[in-house]
Simulated scan of single mutants.
Amino acid sequence: MLSPHEIAALMLLETNQQSEYLDLGDLDALCERQLVLLEKLASGDEQARLTEQGRSILRSVGRIH
């Protein structure tokens, strides 16, 4: 089961893709559950993005269609 903070983190990622504002513990938990994927950018930075499983969670809570 996801915590309210983890669900909120999914919602933030779905709307603006800025993982630097997220709690690292929440981000780690979402990565472990394969709901978020960290992509390495050419600049060397990492960008978090939702996986299909992450989008499925948001659909189930009525956040996206």
Rank of each mutant, 00 (worst) to 15 (best):
L58M: 15
L50Y: 03
T15V: 07
R33H: 14
Q18S: 12
M11K: 12
E20W: 15
S56G: 11
C31L: 04
E52P: 01
E39D: 14
N16P: 00
E46I: 00
R55Q: 14
C31G: 03
G54L: 05
L27Y: 04
D26R: 01
S43T: 14
H65M: 11
V36L: 03
Q18L: 09
L12P: 01
M1P: 06
C31R: 06
H5G: 13
R33Y: 09
T15P: 00
S60H: 10
L38K: 13
L41V: 06
T15L: 14
Q18W: 04
S56I: 02
L37V: 10
G62R: 07
G44N: 08
D45E: 14
S19T: 00
Q18V: 06
L24M: 11
S56R: 09
E6D: 10
G54A: 12
M11N: 02
R55V: 08
R55T: 05
E20C: 13
S3L: 10
E20L: 14
S43Y: 05
V36E: 06
E14W: 06
S19P: 00
S19V: 00
S56Y: 09
G25Y: 00
L10V: 05
A29C: 02
N16C: 02
L2F: 14
D28W: 01
T15W: 07
Q17D: 12
R33P: 01
E6P: 01
M1F: 10
E32W: 00
Q34G: 07
E6M: 06
A29Q: 05
Q17E: 14
E46G: 02
M11Q: 12
G25M: 01
D23W: 05
A48P: 00
L41R: 13
